[in-house]
Amino acid sequence: MFLAQRLLMGAVLVAGVLVLNFLLIRLAPGDPAQVLAGQMGGATPELLARIRADYGLDQPLAGQLATYLGNVLRGDLGTSYFFDRPVAELIAARIGPTILLVVTAQLGAILLGVVMGVLAARRPHGLLSGAVTVLATVGYATPVFWTGIMLIILFASILPVFPVEGMADASYDGNPLAYALDVAHHLVLPAATLGIIFLAQYARLARASMIDVLGTDYIRTARAKGVRQRRVVFHHALRNAILPILTVAGLQFGNLISGALLVETVFNWPGMGR
Rank of each mutant, 00 (worst) to 15 (best):
V248C: 00
A224K: 07
A49Y: 06
Q34P: 00
A121K: 02
V232A: 10
A203T: 06
L100V: 08
V14F: 11
A141Q: 13
T133D: 15
A121G: 01
G113P: 08
A203W: 03
L13P: 10
L119A: 15
G126F: 13
I197K: 08
G117A: 05
V103L: 11
Q64K: 05
I196Q: 03
A241I: 02
G75C: 05
Q59T: 08
S80W: 03
R26K: 15
L48Y: 10
G96M: 04
N255E: 08
D173I: 04
G117Q: 06
R228Q: 12
L7M: 14
V115I: 13
G166T: 03
G215P: 02
T142K: 02
V134P: 01
A33V: 12
Y218V: 05
G226L: 08
I25G: 05
T98P: 01
A170Y: 08
Q39T: 00
P45C: 12
L61N: 06
V115Q: 07
L128V: 14
L177S: 10
L261I: 05
R239S: 09
G38T: 13
S171Y: 11
Y81I: 10
P176E: 12
A141I: 09
H186Y: 02
R6W: 15
G139E: 11
L69E: 09
L246S: 04
I257G: 02
L36F: 10
Q201M: 12
G226C: 07
L100H: 02
L27G: 08
L101G: 01
Q106N: 04
H236I: 04
K225F: 09
L194V: 06
E165Q: 15
L261D: 02
Y172I: 04
R231G: 01
L262K: 01
V188K: 08
T137E: 11
T147V: 15
L48H: 12
A92T: 05
R220Y: 03
M116F: 12
T133Q: 15
D31Q: 14
V144N: 06
G96D: 01
N21Q: 13
A11M: 14
E264N: 01
S157F: 13
L8D: 09
A53I: 00
D173C: 00
N268G: 15
L128M: 13
Q34K: 00
H185R: 10
I211M: 05
T133P: 00
A92H: 00
P160N: 10
H235L: 09
T247H: 04
V17Y: 11
Y68L: 05
L246D: 09
G75H: 05
I25M: 14
V102T: 10
L48G: 13
L154Y: 09
M1H: 14
R26V: 11
F145S: 06
R207L: 10
M9L: 15
L199A: 04
E46K: 12
H236M: 00
Q229A: 11
L181N: 02
I99N: 00
A136M: 05
I95L: 11
K225V: 09
G10Y: 14
D54H: 06
T98L: 01
L256T: 06
R207G: 02
V161P: 04
M9E: 15
M116A: 15
N71D: 15
L262C: 02
M1K: 14
